[in-house]
């Protein structure tokens, strides 16, 4: 019981992600990269981006899952070690988006692999992506709302040239 609690704590504190594009327009991918850059910096929550699906826990999927990517997405999901979670980012990944009614049926990635969290938007803002990740972590803990207590950081004290930032 205690062991289970410790493992769950560790799992909540270090979700490692791998980023998969299944044929999107690259808009969501730019936002995913934004999340990892200094302004949003999700390493605060222990999130690291990994190159190999074997090292990752969370598949961050963008794009509508085209015919060519379907089998490959399934393969990537199978290569990820258990327990694994999937976040669908953007309207395409959630439901197919503008490709839904095209001549090739692209109905979103949940027609291929099970999805835990949907983050709609075209593209979603980085704040929305972070909120989605926080929702996933809350789900892991068995709660409804995100449980990360915000910490106040005085960013103004880091600004060297104060006049340049004066409004």
């Amino acid at each position: 019981m205690v062991l289970k609690k410790i493992v769950n704590w560790a799992r909540v504190k270090s979700p490692w992600i791998i980023h998969v594009n299944t044929g999107g327009c690259n808009g969501c991918d730019i936002e995913v990269v934004d999340v990892l850059t200094p302004r949003y910096d999700v390493e605060r929550l222990g999130i690291l981006i990994q190159g190999s699906p074997r090292h990752a826990d969370v598949l961050v999927v963008t794009g509508p899952a085209t015919q060519q990517m379907k089998s490959r997405l399934k393969l990537l999901w199978e290569q990820t070690p258990d327990p694994k979670f999937v976040i669908a980012i953007g309207a395409c990944a959630c439901s197919g988006g503008i490709f839904r009614h095209s001549y090739i049926p692209c109905l979103g990635i949940d027609t291929v692999i099970p999805v835990d969290i949907y983050i709609p938007g075209c593209p979603p803002k980085p704040e929305a992506i972070i909120f989605g990740i926080a929702q996933l972590l809350a789900k892991l803990q068995g709660k409804d709302t995100p449980v990360i207590t915000p910490k106040e950081i005085d960013l103004k004290s880091h600004i060297k040239d104060k006049e340049a930032f004066a409004i």
Partner: peptide, 18 residues
Amino acid sequence: PLHTGFKGILQPLADFLK
């Protein structure tokens, strides 16, 4: 790392256990 222990000091331990 910020949210794992004091200023994220337990982050490597959490990674290892996970």
